[in-house]
Write a protein that binds this DNA or RNA. Sequence first.
DNA 1: GAAATACTTAAGTTGACACTTGACAATCGC
DNA 2: GCGATTGTCAAGTGTCAACTTAAGTATTTC
Lengths: 118, 118
Amino acid sequence: MQRKKPDIDRVFHALGDPSRRAILEKLSQGPISVSKLAEPLQITLAAVVQHLKVLEESGLVQTEKVGRVRTCRLEPAGLSVAAEWIGARRSMWERGLDRLGDLLAEPDEKWREKPPRP
Amino acid sequence: MQRKKPDIDRVFHALGDPSRRAILEKLSQGPISVSKLAEPLQITLAAVVQHLKVLEESGLVQTEKVGRVRTCRLEPAGLSVAAEWIGARRSMWERGLDRLGDLLAEPDEKWREKPPRP
DNA sequence: GAAATACTTAAGTTGACACTTGACAATCGC
DNA sequence: GCGATTGTCAAGTGTCAACTTAAGTATTTC
């Protein structure tokens, strides 16, 4: 479909990349500079900076530059967006599973068209 | 970096697409056939089938074909993988935030190299 | 058994995205 | 000031992924 990106979209897209998740793991140990962040990864500093841009735009990471050093840290609120989406789906899920027998037994005109009630 | 894909990678990648999330939302209301699934989306049936393949390989969805109809349903375990990853990161996060003051005050040779202890 | 339904598969297009290289800018230590 | 450190920007490249169209395969219905 590829529509424009609301917040949730950015967050999940950001989480979808292994390098970015590696960055988040590192950051979960505490704030750190860009170059220290890049060191263990096998990509260039420039690439890390690009990932950081994505992470920052998605609200998962915050950065602040002091002198020539940019320090990065996690933004707890960012992950919450994802956690909440998943949580909501999961609960509907489980409610749905309770009714699973019903839904399988019945035909599925349940949530598409409502036949006229005479 | 773009390495090969472990499970968690597939799951987050799958969640990163709006069409696929739309499919999951629909499925969270109960099992449904492929064409019913495709109807409200503005993409072709073929595209939906491709999305379903991704969702199935990531473990988020299960499908079963009976006669000529393929019925799709959510796989609760799939989302758990994502939920757990997020949960783990969040808790480290929060522990990290407590120590934030320390980490900012100290230099950061904390988690990279351990100087020899005489 | 012919027509309709419900997918399935293959091939091709297009745009996004991860990465690189190389040049540049700001700041720190001396 | 000068050199080293630390990051930033702009192109450019190659790959992947989302879609489409079009043709094909089972199944069911009449």
